[in-house]
C-alpha cells in the first residue's frame, strides 16, 4: 500500500503520521507543499496535523490554495483515499473535499487531553478496524476543532451514515458532537482527534492503531 504524507511548512505531525502508517505496513513518501504532482500509484494521501501556514486567521485556508492541494483534490476526484487529521481536517474542509467548517473551540482555549469517542460507523476503510458503536479514546490537541455544518448538510451526513466519530463529552462545542466525517464516496475522512498519537503502549493508549491497521488492510485487499 502506497501512501504520501503532505508537508506544509507549519506541519508538525507529519513525522508522527508517517511513523503510524509505516507501523501498519504502508510504504510512505513525504510530499512538499510546493510540488504540483503526487508520486504515481498512490493509494492514500494523509494530510497531517500542525499549523500549515501559521494559521493565525482561518486554519487551513492558505494551505488549501497550495499547488499540492490541487493534486490532492484531483486524487480524491479519481476515487483516491484521503485522511486528514486535525489541521489536515481543517485543510480538507477548506478545499471542499469535506463539508462544514472548523471554528474556534467554544471555550476559546486550546485543548489537549485524552478524549473518549464513539465509532459511529465501520462502513469505511478508515473505520473498518473498529466495531460500530465502540467507545475508544484518542488524544485531541486543537484550538479550532468546533465543527459546524448547516442543518441540511447535517441531515445528509446523518442520513448517509457519514459521521465517523462522535465525542463522548463534547470538548469544543462541535455541532452534534461530531469529531470526524466521511465524504460521500466514503473515501475521504477528516477527524480532529489524533489516532497517530495512540498506536503503541508507550503512548499510554493504543486505540488509534486499529484505524491504521484497518485502513492499510482494506487498501491492500481492496
Amino acid at each position: 500500500m502506497k501512501a504520501a504524507v503532505i508537508v506544509f511548512p507549519g506541519s508538525n505531525c507529519d513525522r508522527d503520521m508517517a511513523v503510524a502508517l509505516r507501523a501498519a505496513g504502508a510504504d510512505v513518501s513525504m510530499v512538499w507543499h510546493k510540488e504540483a504532482e503526487l508520486p504515481s500509484g498512490l493509494d492514500l494521501i494523509a494530510v497531517p496535523g500542525g499549523f500549515s501556514f501559521g494559521d493565525y486567521l482561518r486554519c487551513g485556508a492558505i494551505a488549501a490554495q497550495s499547488p499540492i492541494c490541487r493534486a490532492v483534490v484531483d486524487h480524491a476526484g479519481r476515487g483516491g483515499f484521503v485522511l486528514g487529521v486535525c489541521n489536515g481536517f481543517q485543510v480538507l474542509t477548506e478545499t471542499g473535499l469535506l463539508p462544514g467548517a472548523l471554528m474556534r473551540n467554544g471555550s476559546i482555549r486550546f485543548v489537549c487531553r485524552s478524549q473518549p469517542l464513539r465509532v459511529e460507523t465501520n462502513a469505511s476503510a478508515f473505520t473498518s478496524g473498529y466495531a460500530a458503536g465502540a467507545e475508544i479514546a484518542l488524544p485531541i490537541a486543537h484550538h479550532d476543532g468546533n465543527y459546524f455544518a448547516d442543518a441540511e448538510t447535517l441531515a445528509a451526513l446523518r442520513a448517509e451514515d457519514r459521521v465517523a466519530f462522535r465525542y463522548v463529552g463534547n470538548p469544543n462545542g462541535s455541532v452534534d458532537d461530531i469529531a470526524g466525517v466521511l465524504s460521500e464516496n466514503r473515501r475521504v475522512l477528516g477527524m480532529m482527534p489524533h489516532p497517530e498519537r495512540a498506536i503503541e503502549p508507550a503512548h499510554g493508549a493504543t486505540d488509534g492503531a486499529a484505524l491504521f491497521a484497518g485502513l492499510v488492510g482494506a487498501l491492500v485487499s481492496g
Binding site: N12, C13, R15, D16, V19, A20, G49, R109, F110, V111, C112, R113, P139, A141, H194, E196, R197, I199, A202, H203, G204
Partner: peptide, 28 residues
C-alpha cells in the same frame, strides 16, 4: 493544574510517555 496544562500540546512528536500533572514529564 489541568486548566493550565490542557492548553499545551503535550503529545506532538508522538514520543511523550508521561504528560504533565504526574511528576516529571517523560519523552522517548
Amino acid at each position: 493544574k489541568q486548566w493550565v496544562y490542557q492548553q499545551y500540546d503535550s503529545q506532538v512528536m508522538a514520543d511523550t510517555i508521561r504528560t504533565p500533572g504526574q511528576g516529571a514529564g517523560i519523552v522517548r
